[in-house]
Amino acid sequence: MKNDYQPPRTNMTSQVILGLLVIGMGLLFLLDNLDILDMHRAFSFWPMVFIVVGTVKLCDTATPGGRLVGGILVGIGVLLTLDRMDIIEFSWRAVWPLALIGLGAVMLVKAARGRRLLAGSSKDGIADDVIDSTAIMGGFERRVTSQAFRGGEITAVMGGCSLDMRGCAIQPLDEAVINVFTFWGGITIKCPPDWTVVLQGTPIMGGFEDKTMAPPDGSKRLVIRGYAIMGGVEVRN
Rank of each mutant, 00 (worst) to 15 (best):
M1C: 04
M1D: 07
K2I: 10
D4L: 15
Y5V: 02
Y5A: 13
Q6C: 07
P7Q: 00
S14C: 05
Q15E: 08
Q15G: 11
L21Y: 12
V22P: 03
I23P: 13
I23M: 07
G24A: 05
G26M: 09
L27E: 06
L28Y: 12
F29N: 12
L34P: 04
L34S: 12
L37P: 13
H40W: 07
R41M: 15
W46G: 00
W46Q: 13
M48Y: 12
I51Y: 06
V53L: 05
V56L: 01
C59T: 12
D60S: 11
D60A: 05
D60F: 00
V69E: 01
G70P: 11
V74S: 03
G75Y: 04
G77L: 03
V78S: 08
V78R: 02
T81Y: 09
F90W: 14
W92Q: 11
A94C: 07
V95A: 12
W96D: 10
A99W: 13
I101Y: 11
G104M: 14
A105M: 15
V106C: 04
V106H: 02
V106F: 04
A111I: 08
A119V: 11
S122I: 04
S122F: 01
D124E: 15
G125W: 06
A127V: 10
D128Y: 09
V130L: 03
I131R: 09
T134C: 06
T134L: 06
I136W: 03
M137H: 07
M137K: 00
G139E: 08
T145A: 03
R150S: 06
G151T: 06
A156G: 01
D164L: 04
A169K: 14
I170A: 10
D174K: 14
T182S: 10
T182N: 10
F183A: 14
G186D: 00
I187L: 11
I187C: 04
T188A: 07
T188W: 08
K190S: 03
K190L: 11
P192D: 13
V197L: 12
V198W: 04
L199P: 07
T202S: 11
I204Q: 03
D210L: 02
D210S: 11
K211W: 11
A214H: 14
D217G: 11
R221S: 01
I224L: 02
G226A: 05
G226K: 05
Y227W: 00
A228T: 03
G231F: 12
V233F: 01
N237I: 14
